[in-house]
C-alpha cells in the first residue's frame, strides 16, 4: 500500500532508446506524480511526450530506468501487467473505439471479461457515465455513427468504466474539428474536479492553465522545465521553453 509521503507514481531515470541509442525518445526522465495531480505535458513534436505517456502503462517497454506505481516497481518486474493496466486508463488521439461493437458494448466489454463483472451491473454503470457526458441516447449506436467529439467522450467513459486510479490522455483533442474540442475538454475538466489523477499531453494551453496544477515541458526526450501553470506560462526560465511558448501562443 502507499505510504502517505510517497508519490503515486515515481519515475526515475526513464530511458527509451531506438536503434541502439541513435535515437533517444526518452533520455533519463525523472518525475513524481502525486495522487490528485492534473499534470499537463507540453513540448514540441518528437520531444517524447507520447513515449513518456505510453511508458507509464508499459505499452512501450522502457530501455532503462524505473517506474514505481503505488509502491511497486513495474519495469522489468514479475507483476501481472494486465492487472496493473486496469488501474491506469488511457485515452488516445484517434479514439480507438472498437468499430464492431456498439457504444454500450465498447464500455462493458473490458469490465465483463477482465473484471468478470456482471452484465447488469456493468451496463448500469456504463449508462450512468454515458448520461454524464450526454450520450446516453447513443448507447446502441456504432462508433462510425458518432462525431469525433462524441467518440472521444465515449473513449473517456470506456476507460472510466474500469474505475482507474490514473487517467492518461495523449492529445485527446488533436484529431477533432475545432468546434468539438470544447465538449471533450469539458468532460476532462469535470474529471479533474472530481479529483482524478490525470496526465495529459495536449496543445490546449488554455486548458493547461485553467485545469492543470502542474505543467511539464519536454524537449529532446527530457523534462526541461516543470512547475505550476503560472511558473511555466508567465515566468518561463529556459530559452527552449520561451521559444516554444512564443511559437505556440502566437498561433
Amino acid at each position: 500500500m502507499t505510504t502517505d509521503n510517497k508519490a503515486l507514481i515515481q519515475v526515475r531515470n526513464l530511458k527509451k532508446h531506438y536503434n541502439y541509442g541513435k535515437l533517444k525518445a526518452l533520455d533519463g526522465v525523472n518525475i513524481d506524480i502525486n495522487k490528485g495531480d492534473v499534470m499537463v505535458v507540453i513540448g514540441p513534436s518528437g520531444s517524447g511526450k507520447s513515449t513518456f505517456l505510453r511508458s507509464l502503462n508499459l505499452l512501450e517497454e522502457p530501455t532503462d530506468g524505473s517506474i514505481i506505481f503505488d509502491g511497486q516497481e513495474i519495469v522489468d518486474s514479475k507483476i501481472n501487467l494486465d492487472a496493473f493496466r486496469q488501474r491506469m486508463g488511457m485515452v488516445f488521439q484517434h479514439f480507438n473505439l472498437f468499430p464492431h461493437k456498439t457504444i454500450l458494448e465498447n464500455l462493458t466489454l473490458a469490465p465483463q471479461i477482465v473484471k468478470k463483472a456482471g452484465k447488469e451491473e456493468t451496463e448500469k454503470r456504463a449508462l450512468e457515465l454515458l448520461d454524464r457526458v450526454g450520450l446516453k441516447d447513443r448507447a446502441n449506436a456504432y462508433p462510425v455513427q458518432l462525431s469525433g467529439g462524441q467518440k472521444q467522450r465515449v473513449a473517456i467513459v470506456r476507460a472510466l468504466c474500469m474505475n482507474p486510479e490514473v487517467m492518461l490522455f495523449d492529445e485527446p483533442t488533436s484529431a477533432l474539428d475545432p468546434e468539438m474540442v470544447g465538449e471533450v475538454l469539458e468532460v476532462m475538466k469535470e474529471l479533474a474536479k472530481a479529483g482524478m489523477t490525470m496526465i495529459c499531453v495536449t496543445h490546449e494551453m488554455g486548458f493547461a492553465r485553467e485545469v492543470g496544477n502542474r505543467v511539464v515541458f519536454m524537449a529532446d526526450g527530457n523534462i526541461i522545465e516543470e512547475g505550476t501553470p503560472e511558473d511555466i506560462f508567465d515566468h518561463p526560465k529556459s530559452a527552449r521553453l520561451k521559444d516554444f511558448l512564443g511559437k505556440v501562443l502566437e498561433a
Binding site: N57, L59, D82, A83, R85, Q86, M88, G89, M90, F92, H94, N96, L97, F98, L109, A110, I113, V114, K115, A155, R158, A159, M162
Partner: peptide, 18 residues
C-alpha cells in the same frame, strides 16, 4: 487491423488472448 485497437484493448487490461 489497426494497431490502435490492440493498444486500446491492452490499456484496458485485456490479455493478449482476450
Amino acid at each position: 487491423v489497426d494497431g490502435g485497437q490492440t493498444e486500446a484493448a491492452r490499456s484496458l487490461g485485456m490479455s493478449k488472448g482476450q
